[in-house]
Amino acid sequence: MADLPGSSSWKEWLLNYSLYIILGVLIIIVVIYEPNFLSTRNLSNILAQASTRGILALGVAGMIVYTGTDLSAGRILGVSAAISASLLQSVTYASRMYPGITEPLPLVIPLLLAILAAIVFCLINAFGFAVLKMHPFIISLGTQLIAYGALCLYIDSQANGAQPLASLDPRYISAVNGSFDIGFMNLPYLVIYLAICSAFMWVIWNKTTLGKNMFAIGGNPEAAAVSGVNVTRNIFGVYFVAGILYGIAAFLEAGRVQSVTTATGLNYELDAISGCVIGGVSFTGGVGTIPGVLIGVIILQVINYSLYYLGVNAYYQYIIKGLIIILAVAIDVRKYIAKK
């Protein structure tokens, strides 16, 4: 293809930058209706809202590279969010889950525990996939229920029975929801956290054996095994990293919403998976980039945000979102279709 001159090269250009073109077209459409849409405030809102989903998507993306998926990401996030929220309820709140905590804990302890819990669930998934040779779809379908059950039990174990975990420590809330001004715009901390996680994942994917081998396994498992790649170890590694990201996302999400219930995390994995897929992480495996995942998540959030912004009827929102996802992926797969 590459050697054909003329028309095919701009076709290729269109294909390669299709995601950015879609994003651009979306924004132009919105601006036509609401010229005020282009404000730094809207920009920082969109990025902040995309942050926790984005971090979750960064974790799920690795599993999609393996031609797998993770249906349990949302519920795992729920469990970890409940852990961080319960440990960081305001110590003056009478019906807090742990009345024994009378001095505020350092934020890092609940963060680490949230990460730990997420890692445990991710390793169950990894075990099912790598050792029991189950399809990730199936194993995570099971894990998802286990995580939901654990979440309900945990929330129900409070002295007054099941009630939302709220009244969070103000330090926690401001550490998550705070922001600072740089020059012309106000930058929420959430955006910084997303940036840090993205940089971390970019290094993992591009600069470590773990990431390189992950792509090899996703692209051609036989070639990878013949080249001496330890497939099982690699899978555990990738799921471990995903666990870290889920934990961080959960910690931030609890602080962002400021209340955790049994419904927290429900269907978050679908947004994360859609983001990855829009961003060109292929379900056929072995393909994907961190900037792609970020763009995918941001496109999704721009769709959400602008549909709210334009006040589109809620039911049409679903239809439009569905159409845009199909369109984005339909264009994206053109890159890889082989002809016979």
Binding site: T208, G211, K212, F215, G219, N220, A224, G228, G286, V287
Partner: peptide
């Protein structure tokens, strides 16, 4: 040929034994 088509030439050559500096590929 048994190769990982979606990755680069050099990654295919060094797959399974990537050269590293300070722990990073």
């Amino acid at each position: 040929l048994n190769q990982v088509l979606k990755r680069s030439v050099m990654e295919n050559i060094w797959l399974g034994r990537f050269p590293k500096r300070f722990g990073f590929v």
